[in-house]
């Protein structure tokens, strides 16, 4: 199994805050709100700039109510659901994210396709889980900081969902981090989990971000800034995985630092 990339080793962190980064972000925004793209569309950069698009499928997994749908909505710059409704069937969401590679200084347009499926639909319909796992490039395993059972369920999930898919990126995301005061998952448990599994672990707050002057439209830039760490980590792990798969990086066991 490939070891995850160290944070900041593949993608230039905080590049999106730079003047150059901000220019690239403009193509996924329109009048300060996030642009929505259909399946036939992609962001267009001003004529002289042409960049490669790297597309990935990401399956978001986790028990009902941990915040899968809210996370995906937040990543896409859409309204997050306030009351919990179990997601009906599968829904997919496309998010474009430009990022700069450390090694080559090149900017790549990442295209993430998030697959989100309600838990009861997964149980009720046999075809849903295989469709979500089919040719997926990454698994996001969600637990909620306010639901200890969802954290304890992680090893089971990792085995059940991603067991037979080695060589696919796996990341763990702790949601509802804004509720940290009421957490059921203390830091020492996270440390132990990290040591045992050696997986990238992120914390998110999928709460509505800043709004524009009209008071109701979500501010696209602010939303991106809230989620840049998640998008950059995903880009980093997925790009790294591709490099390893293409034999461009060493993977021998001796290489594994202890």
């Amino acid at each position: 199994m490939t070891r995850p990339a160290a944070p900041g080793s593949v993608i230039v962190p905080d590049w999106q805050e730079s003047a150059e980064g901000k220019e690239y972000l403009a193509c996924i925004l329109r009048k300060n709100r996030r642009r929505v793209f259909g399946l036939l569309e992609r962001p267009v950069l001003p004529p002289p700039v042409a960049i490669d698009t790297a597309s990935y499928k990401i399956f978001v997994s986790g028990k009902s109510g941990v915040g899968k749908t809210a996370l995906v909505a937040k990543l896409a710059g859409l309204e997050v659901p306030v009351v919990h409704h179990e997601t009906t069937g599968i829904q997919t969401t496309v998010v474009f994210w430009p990022a700069k590679l450390q090694a080559s200084d090149r900017v790549v347009m990442f295209r993430f396709e998030f697959w989100d499926c309600g838990e009861s639909a997964l149980k009720k319909f046999d075809h849903m889980l295989p469709a979500c796992k089919d040719k997926t490039d990454a698994f996001l395993f969600l637990f909620s900081f306010t639901d200890r059972a969802s954290f304890e369920d992680l090893p089971g999930q990792l085995a059940r969902v991603a067991g037979e898919a080695p060589g696919v990126v796996r990341m763990v995301i702790g949601s509802k981090f804004d509720q940290y005061m009421h957490t059921d998952v203390p830091e020492r448990d996270l440390t132990a989990f990290r040591q045992a599994w050696e997986l990238p672990l992120l914390r998110v707050k999928s709460v509505p971000g800043r709004r524009l002057a009209d008071g109701h439209t979500l501010d696209g830039r602010a939303g991106l800034a809230d989620m840049a760490h998640v998008l950059n980590s995903l880009a980093e792990q997925l790009w790294h995985q591709d490099q390893v798969a293409a034999g461009l990086l060493p993977t021998s066991p001796e290489d594994t630092p202890s």
């Binding site: 929505v36 399946l39 859409l78 599968i90 829904q91 997919t92 969401t93 009720k124």
Partner: peptide, 10 residues
């Protein structure tokens, strides 16, 4: 329905 790129809806 709220916008989604694709759905598989029973």
């Amino acid at each position: 329905l709220p916008p989604q790129a694709a759905r598989d809806y029973p």
